[in-house]
Design a protein around this nucleic acid. Sequence first.
RNA 1: GUGGGUAUAGCUCAGUUGGUUAGAGCGCCAGGUUGUGGCCCUGGAGGUCAUGGGUUCGAUUCCCAUUAUUCACCCCA
Length: 424
Amino acid sequence: MPIQAPKGTRDILPEDINQWNFVEEEFSDICRRFGYNEIRIPVFEHTELFQRGVGDTTDIVQKEMYTFEDKAGRSITLRPEGTAGVVRSYIEHGMSSLPQPVKLFYQITAYRYENVQKGRYREFHQFGVELLGASDPAADVEVISILSLYFEKLGIKNLKLNLNSIGCPECRAEYNRLLKGFLSDIIVDMCDTCKTRYDRNPMRIIDCKEEHCKKQLVNAPALLDHICDDCSKHFDSVLQKLEAIGIPYAIDKNIVRGLDYYTRTVFEFVSENIGTQGTVCGGGRYDGLVEDCGGPPTPGIGFALGVERLLLEMESQGIKIPKQPAPDIYIGSIGEKAALASEKLAWQLRRNNIICIKDIMGRSVKAQMKYADKLGARYSLILGDTEIETNKARLKDMVNGETKDISLDTLIGRLIKNKASEWL
RNA sequence: GUGGGUAUAGCUCAGUUGGUUAGAGCGCCAGGUUGUGGCCCUGGAGGUCAUGGGUUCGAUUCCCAUUAUUCACCCCA
């Protein structure tokens, strides 16, 4: 059997590339409008970065990383997400001494060893933003509003914004004590994962999907009801500012996020029509992450958007994406002399930004015309002995079939000076 | 890691109640008078019917395994 692309990876073919170019360019555009600059980070990092940054107790680190030893025995991991790498770069390049805040965006692939399903692949694409050095609620709102504007520009409707606050380490410690108190009697009756979480990260028990566990948790205290005053004020301010600019949201007390670094505000944009993996975008604040990774205490907030899911959503909403431009002109030729002339002509046109396709197969005129038609060329022109002798060629409009004889001396000037729609 | 569906040409799919040359449409290539596309007509290329075993006189068809794919669980983008 011929070699296939590895499980969970996909080719993005020329026929689809315009969709990708379109959403990429639009994203860069919006980010720059908010003052964010692009950063590019390595595909692989030291495994330790993700263990520390993403968190040892997370599913990502425990079972989903592509980890291998390089030839010098270093443990290397393909990035399962972008934030850890960006934060590493921020620290490594001393960005804390840049004017604050530091605003970054990126467009990356990420890798997770998971079983594939709709909207989930082993190699997938993320657009992300990281805003470092700003702790004010206005920062949270800025990051969310980037997404809001982006979706608006793409014409995506009805993505639901869900918000929660999971507090700071202090109020979370307080809450974990409270939760463990609540759970102490019933934990014996819950699933194995929950039992492990009871000691390592009790908060995530709230997120358990086991029916049996869920029933026991109905009356469990919600974190949002027990965050400290500062966190509470922060969250209220975020909500107030969102309302001020008219971004609708819903509070979802169950959003916990699967990554350990989140603090305070967490959010996601969810779709209901792209399968069960409906989270198009997830993000939140991570005020302790930079310090945990060995940098100065620095607040941060960001998000990652799943591009495959974004495209699924756009498709399900029937959003049209501009096609890549068709060739302006096809230049055919018959015979050696004409082939030489067509070489020169095509070269001149291409140097002047005209999309020009020429014959390089030496085929019959009929075959060349068919080809020009399939390419969707706006005009065609065939060179042969007659054209060389008379110094004239017939320019043909491929849309309506009209033709006009044009002197070869004036042809190039005519095509360069005028818009393609005015060539005839 | 777990469970279900699927696997026939580049694509979308027929088909064989197990019988020897496996089909269509689209696409691709070439022709339909000498140098002009789109419609139409003709011809051609392209498949060890996912792979490996088993049952059988005989398997693409039945059985098993493997792999891939797809959907779902867990979890996440």
